[in-house]
Design a protein around this nucleic acid. Structure first.
Lengths: 144, 144
DNA sequence: CTACGACTTCAAGTTCACTTTAGGTCAAGG
DNA sequence: CCTTGACCTAAAGTGAACTTGAAGTCGTAG
């Protein structure tokens, strides 16, 4: 059984080889060894990468994700941290919901200018008050 | 009536003076003039800043927000763009909902390791498949 | 055996939205 | 009048998550 090399892992996971090397540098993953200079990985790498993807999708930074792995490669996820992040996601979701509704309305609103639309103005003062602040960045440039 | 200076605008809006200068450099705002070297602003600056905050909260970049202002300072918001962004927010919201539910479950799950929890594994393969990919960055470091 | 192309390292570059720093100006209070 | 401190500019720095580039190594197909 040949272990996958970086190209194979990249192909299967959809993660660029450069990112895999970067993750290794950050201590998020490790190769099983080398074939010559070339990295070879254990099949378990794919689960590891899925965990990383999951962490990212949940809004954890790579450093935070790194903290969830023990030195021995085992996972040690703090349940408290998961709750905290879930609460954070809740707040974000509520905010984004308000935004989406506002945008949706503004897109069809008949008012001559958005500034004359009451709904839009409500949204505006919410933004000004910071009720809504805290930028998110929903759609990072996709890989691949 | 004295026009507000940068410190006043910063105080009222909660936006650091450095950010206001940065916005000016980017062409997002303009001062009404100077008092000596010092910028003075028209009261309309506050509405402008609210628009910027709103745009940010909706996930527009500063450049995109800049494109929504005419040279004369009027607003020209493309309704099509609003719809597009609303759709994008919808996708993000759905994704975040799945994440939050998963995290919430994982936080209370009785399985000895998260890797043995079926719910967690479902989430994991969703992440691996990229169903969920596309990182967001919900909670940027707050200003102030 | 040799050439090729895929891999390697290390450093620097990219984007976004700002902040920080260094060095200077000037309006206002005492 | 003089000091003070808030403002000014320009340039460089920050952090996250990678990507890109240059220069070098080496397994494998022919």
């Amino acid at each position: 059984m040949k272990l996958p090399d970086i190209a194979e892992v990249s192909r299967v996971s959809g993660i660029p080889a450069s990112a895999l090397r970067f993750y290794e540098e950050k201590g998020l993953i490790a190769s099983a060894g080398r074939h010559g200079l070339r990295r070879v990985y254990e099949p378990a790498i794919f689960e590891r990468l899925a965990l990383i993807a999951l962490g990212q999708a949940s809004g954890f930074t790579l450093d935070e994700i790194g903290a969830m792995f023990c030195a021995d490669g085992r996972v040690k996820i703090d349940r408290q941290m998961l709750s905290t992040k879930a609460d954070e996601l809740d707040r974000t979701i509520r905010r984004l919901n308000a935004m989406r509704d506002g945008l949706r309305h503004a897109a069809v609103c008949r008012a001559p200018s958005h500034l004359e639309c009451p709904t839009f103005r409500r949204l505006l003062s919410a933004a000004a008050k910071g009720t809504i602040r805290a930028p998110e960045k929903p759609a990072r440039k996709r890989r691949r």
